[in-house]
Amino acid sequence: MTMTKLRASLRAPVFVLAVVALTACTPMTRFHGFAPDARELAQLAVGQTTRDEVMTLFGPPTSDGALRDDTLYYVASQFDRIGPFAPQEVDRTVIALRFDSADRLRNVSRYTLEDGRVVTLDRRVTDDGIGDLGVLEQLLGSFGRLDAGTLLGADDDF
């Protein structure tokens, strides 16, 4: 095969490989949730707008107040994924709408990803007690729990 024919035969595979490599490095963006923007929030009047009016304007919230029933949360997030890597959250907006006892809007708060902080969750896991025993101790400890019926293959059909 001559050098000219070799170059001609490699053009298509090299082109396809270049296109695949470029598309693999292109970030894929996903959007989750909904948070009203400043123009939409301008429609709300503190002290006048009711909880029902907010839900009519913006729809059901992403979450109600987990610790307090007087707050509605609207959350929107943007994730970018590049190639085989895990998605990265690049933007988050949380709108917290607080209401008074008469269900009138009391406060509007806006939080972004920069306002966030890491929350350590308390893991409540039951200890199985096996971690303190070695392999030999586990094997020797199981001998007392065997019964003859299991060893001999007896059926328990009465």
Rank of each mutant, 00 (worst) to 15 (best):
residue 22 L to I: 15
residue 22 L to A: 15
residue 23 T to I: 10
residue 24 A to M: 05
residue 25 C to T: 10
residue 27 P to C: 13
residue 28 M to W: 10
residue 28 M to L: 14
residue 30 R to N: 13
residue 30 R to C: 08
residue 31 F to D: 03
residue 33 G to Y: 05
residue 35 A to T: 09
residue 36 P to L: 07
residue 37 D to E: 12
residue 39 R to N: 14
residue 39 R to E: 15
residue 40 E to Y: 04
residue 41 L to F: 11
residue 41 L to P: 08
residue 41 L to E: 13
residue 42 A to G: 06
residue 43 Q to A: 15
residue 43 Q to C: 06
residue 43 Q to R: 14
residue 46 V to P: 06
residue 47 G to F: 15
residue 47 G to H: 13
residue 47 G to Y: 15
residue 49 T to L: 11
residue 49 T to E: 08
residue 50 T to P: 15
residue 51 R to F: 15
residue 52 D to M: 08
residue 52 D to R: 14
residue 52 D to I: 07
residue 53 E to W: 06
residue 54 V to P: 03
residue 55 M to N: 06
residue 56 T to H: 12
residue 56 T to L: 13
residue 56 T to M: 11
residue 57 L to R: 15
residue 57 L to E: 13
residue 58 F to N: 02
residue 61 P to R: 09
residue 63 S to R: 11
residue 63 S to Y: 06
residue 65 G to S: 06
residue 68 R to H: 09
residue 68 R to S: 10
residue 69 D to Y: 03
residue 73 Y to E: 09
residue 80 D to A: 00
residue 81 R to K: 02
residue 81 R to Y: 00
residue 81 R to M: 00
residue 83 G to P: 02
residue 85 F to E: 01
residue 87 P to T: 12
residue 88 Q to A: 09
residue 88 Q to G: 04
residue 89 E to G: 02
residue 91 D to R: 03
residue 97 L to P: 00
residue 97 L to C: 06
residue 98 R to G: 06
residue 99 F to M: 02
residue 99 F to S: 01
residue 100 D to W: 01
residue 100 D to G: 00
residue 104 R to C: 09
residue 106 R to C: 05
residue 107 N to L: 12
residue 110 R to S: 07
residue 110 R to D: 05
residue 112 T to Q: 04
residue 113 L to T: 07
residue 113 L to G: 08
residue 113 L to V: 09
residue 113 L to F: 10
